[in-house]
């Protein structure tokens, strides 16, 4: 569990970037942080694994302040995927890159080797390939794989789909969804509202270093005040859902009003049609 208690943060001790932010992320949650550039989302992510220390308040990881945990302890609990994979990749082969985290934490044993072999097979990587010669999407996947292989209970993803084409984006997000299905807590910064709507269970909207909305994905993405405050455009499914509810107020209590994905919307509409035909 990650808990922010009235956290303020600043990079230069002069300009505050976060202002008394409070929220709790439960184990197994899938939370998307949304908002404009400069809203404080990435700063919030950096606070989660101790890359940044709060200037006021506390960030608790399973009840322990991150300031009291050592780098290796934090890294073993919170995996962090950076927006730019080239900042993370530093080894000469894909295999070395995947093993790097284990080596850094002093856990490079036979078990680690087996995990690396398994992930190489799962992602279809060439183990001896030079990481910097891979294309952008594959480098991002490699960076993600090097986080997944560590099997941390929490993963923090700072804009994991930036710069990826649709196919690469879907591949990365499917891997993340699979991790979440297996019990990993996922915290993600994302500007793509379609991705947020499709995958996140909860959304935290930020603007100017403050949380302006925090709730279930369908609630936040249909909250006009939150969308306006965080300068967000909801995904098309949410927009259609809102239009349908606007035209027919009776739909407000149905699954149509809560659908985030095309599949969910189709299912909800089918249910509605069946209900109308039966009743």
């Amino acid at each position: 569990m990650i808990e922010f208690r009235s956290v303020s943060a600043s990079y230069d001790a002069e300009t505050p970037v976060l202002h008394e932010v409070s929220f709790t992320i439960e184990d197994g949650d899938f939370v998307a942080f949304v908002g404009t550039n400069g809203a404080g989302k990435s700063t919030t992510m950096r606070l989660m694994n101790g890359l940044l220390e709060p200037t006021a308040g506390e960030v608790l990881l399973d009840g322990t302040p991150t300031t009291q945990l050592r780098t290796s302890q934090l890294a073993a609990r919170v995996g962090f995927l950076f927006q730019n994979p080239d900042r993370q990749i530093c080894c000469n082969t894909v295999r070395d890159e995947l093993l790097f985290g284990f080596k850094a934490q002093g856990r490079a044993d036979a078990q680690a080797e087996a995990k690396v072999d398994a992930i190489i097979e799962r992602f279809g990587f060439d183990a001896d390939a030079e990481p910097f010669l891979l294309n952008r999407g594959t480098r991002q996947l490699l960076a993600l794989a090097s986080i997944i292989v560590m099997e941390t209970p929490v993963v923090v993803l700072d804009e994991p789909t930036t710069g990826l084409d649709f196919r690469e984006c879907a591949k990365v997000m499917d891997v993340i969804a699979e991790m979440h299905a297996q019990g990993t807590t996922v915290v993600m910064v994302c500007h793509d509202m379609e991705v947020v709507g499709d995958y996140a269970k909860r959304v935290v909207a930020m603007t100017a270093g403050r949380v302006v909305a925090d709730g279930l994905t369908f609630q936040v993405l249909r909250d006009p005040a939150a969308l306006h405050a965080a300068h967000l455009l909801p995904p098309q499914v949410s927009q259609i859902s809102m239009m349908l509810v606007e035209r027919n107020a009776e739909l407000a209590d149905t699954a149509i009003a809560q659908a985030n994905t095309v599949e969910a919307m189709l299912d909800a509409m089918q249910e509605q049609e069946e209900a109308v035909s039966h009743g």
Partner: peptide, 18 residues
């Protein structure tokens, strides 16, 4: 700035630069 970002990324993976 790049070096600082790279060091930060490695710190997140458990490299202790202290």
């Amino acid at each position: 700035n790049d070096m600082s970002g790279i060091m930060e990324a490695q710190t997140a993976r458990g490299v202790a630069f202290d």
